[in-house]
Design a protein around this nucleic acid. Structure first.
Ligand SMILES: [Mn+2]
Ligand SMILES: [Mn+2]
Ligand SMILES: [Mn+2]
Ligand SMILES: [Mn+2]
Lengths: 239, 239
DNA sequence: TCAGTTTATTAGTGTAAGCTAACACGTCTT
DNA sequence: AAGACGTGTTAGCTTACACTAATAAACTGA
């Protein structure tokens, strides 16, 4: 064992962990994550991504097809899901136990996810009762690396008359999250689509059971992921 | 505002934060922190310290007297105390709210202290009721940067017959901490010094109020910081 | 089909922070 | 006063990860 032998499994750096997470999100629908998409999400310049892609594929965490993009290997996917579990448990812990709002947790979790130990995450998960969903409705991967795959549709695509449960909110933008919470649009809420205007117009909904109406513009309606509710289904309680 | 202007107040790096903390501890009795002491505590090579010392004194966080050592500036001391507050609140939060043992918290806090926001620390401090001491009895600096200065003496130096309150335990070594907890030697405990053997021999004590005897070797007795108890003083409850 | 545009990669630079080997300073002992 | 020894510093190298400028590949639309 000389000073020349490189450490076989060095711990992942914060940067590597963040790259794996965004590659996971960008390629989770099956395709490739492109250099510029990764650069955009991480707010770094494209050549920085090219450099990191080189290193990640050298260490076997991703597969790189030049000029096409990257995908996670099995190992890369495991690490990505481990980070996503940490992130979402942290978000939930901060909201449930320390009074954070759902629009403030993301930034905090984004840093803490790299510093906590696996043991601390599991203690938090226990304190929270082994939760399934984070404050934004996103599923929490298990410690074994499994994640729930759900078939959801954006409110923007739901047909008029559909009875829906809001399940996930697809943004971390604090201003949007505050507005949505204000409108009562949080995961678990039941609603009926009552109208949609043409030419990418707004969707009008009625909240259940109150019947309160809401008008949701196209952009926000794209972020509200819903599932169709069978009659008499009450859904999960809102958080 | 050109690309050439350096950021005036870049956030401190994890390394810088750790250097400031150990310099604080090494120079808190008034003297200089030496290169090799810093290197020893951080487990880095002496030239690494020389390099960092250059940068820290360039940025005004420390004063460097070549070949003699370093001391914190007012700004450096502020930052060090801010980190110590974070560290100690984290340690207490992990023990009180997540069931950590007092011998496991240090390593976790050592990483988290660099990742938490000031806001999260204050939320934790509130959840804990604005605590004054960490699980090892060390005083927690206030958010304003004040720290309690106490006159404590090591059990090893206490005269036979003295009635003492154990206030701080001066180690983070997990094995030692486990043993001490096992012996009932945690901050807040009252005891009487019943005997001391010569030639750096062990100290024998009687725990109050039970009267249970304990024999404490020289090395451990050096780590147990105590204050003399006026008659009828009950001390703080043990944690 | 090919010229123009968009996207990706390469080349080269910088900063933070570690290391070893070589050298310099200060002190203690004779 | 002079070495000798321990401690501190300098020189030079390495890795991770950013950046800009220059170049190469891929796509697109006339
Ligand atoms: Mn992150
Ligand atoms: Mn979330
Ligand atoms: Mn630390
Ligand atoms: Mn402590």
């Amino acid at each position: 064992m000389s000073a020349l032998t490189r450490d076989a499994n060095p711990p992942l750096t914060k940067s590597v962990e963040d790259y794996l997470k965004v590659i996971y999100h960008l390629s989770s629908q099956g395709g490739f994550a492109t250099t510029s998409d990764i650069a955009g999400m991480l707010e770094v310049a494209p050549p920085s991504v090219s450099g990191m892609v080189k290193r990640l594929s050298d260490t076997g965490l991703i597969e790189h097809v030049p000029y096409r993009g990257v995908q996670l290997t099995a190992q890369g996917r495991r690490e990505a899901l481990r980070m996503i579990r940490r992130h979402r448990i942290l978000e939930l812990f901060l909201t449930q136990q320390l009074g954070y709002d759902w629009d403030g947790v993301h930034a905090e979790a984004e840093r803490l996810e790299h510093a906590v130990s696996d043991g601390l995450i599991e203690r938090m998960a226990n304190a929270l009762g082994q939760p399934q969903y984070d404050p934004h409705g996103d599923p929490i991967p298990t410690a074994a690396g499994e994640i729930e795959e759900t078939e959801l549709m954006p409110l923007a695509d739901a047909p008029v008359g559909a009875k829906l449960e809001l399940r996930q909110v697809g943004t971390q933008d604090a201003a949007r999250l505050r507005y949505l919470a204000d409108q009562g649009l949080t995961p678990g809420v039941l609603l009926v689509v009552s109208d949609r205007q043409p030419f990418n117009g707004p969707t009008t909904i009625a909240l259940a059971p109150s019947g309160d109406p809401r008008i949701v513009g196209r952009d926000l309606a794209q972020l509200l992921w819903c599932r169709e509710v069978p009659v008499e289904d009450r859904g999960r309680p809102a958080t």
